[in-house]
């Protein structure tokens, strides 16, 4: 554990709390992509299968349980409790275009040819693109509630912080995880456009609006 990873994980934790706060306080999941949330639940469930047979640490265990539970809870809120506030007609990204290629990539790039390792690889690739339906929706509507942009910023910060973490681990532990690093860099790059608008508009007190 190093400071970058800890801050990254805390940022990830914060992003989920912000998302829950957004849904509860506005009593609405408007502006949130159900598809992205469903992909995250898939990511956590396929990645954290090792909960059942591999003990890393209490920290690791608690975080994994939290990420699985909170992502499923968000799906419940969107699908049942606040269902009328979710508009599927603007959440139109075709997730099969993500799931298929990620499955193929997992078959090509993995550390061991076992089911848990293939699912782990799949989850890494899927996480790297899981935000796309959300960003696509943002692009379509051209605007977002400020709290939703804070959610995305915290999520992006989590990914960005994992990069110095890998550099640090490379130097101090001689540890490199090429699959996670490659997918992680792609994932972080997807946020660059969003971050530009977030820093130049939202943090200056303006509404998140994309140029027409």
């Amino acid at each position: 554990m190093n400071i970058f990873r800890l801050l990254g994980d805390l940022s990830h934790l914060a992003s989920i709390l912000i998302l829950l706060q957004k849904i509860q306080s506005t009593r609405s999941c408007r502006g949130i992509s159900f598809k992205t949330q469903a992909l995250y639940a898939t990511v956590f469930i396929t990645r954290y299968l090792d909960l059942f047979y591999d003990w890393v640490s209490l920290y690791n265990f608690v975080m994994k349980i939290f990420f699985i539970a909170s992502s499923c809870y968000v799906l419940y809120l969107m699908k049942y409790k606040y269902r009328p506030t979710h508009d599927p007609s603007i959440d139109t990204f075709r997730v099969e275009y993500l799931l298929g290629p990620c499955a193929v990539l997992a078959l090509l790039f993995h550390y061991r040819f076992t089911l848990p390792e293939l699912l782990w690889s799949f989850s890494i690739f899927l996480e790297s693109v899981a935000i796309l339906p959300q960003l696509f929706m943002l692009q379509r509507t051209g605007e977002a509630e400020t709290i939703t942009t804070h959610y995305l910023a915290a999520l992006g910060a989590y990914r960005a912080l994992y990069i110095p973490n890998w550099i640090y681990r490379w130097f101090t532990e001689d540890m490199v995880d090429p699959i996670a690093v490659t997918a992680g860099i792609v994932q972080t790059a997807l946020y660059l456009d969003f971050f530009y608008v977030y820093f130049t508009k939202v943090l200056q007190g303006q509404k998140f609006e994309l140029p027409a």
């Binding site: 990830h12 090792d50 990420f67 550390y111 782990w120 973490n165 995880d177 090429p178």
Partner: peptide, 10 residues
């Protein structure tokens, strides 16, 4: 090298 003890990152 890849961590032989499994995946310790979240």
């Amino acid at each position: 090298a890849h961590d032989e003890h499994g995946h310790d990152e979240l």
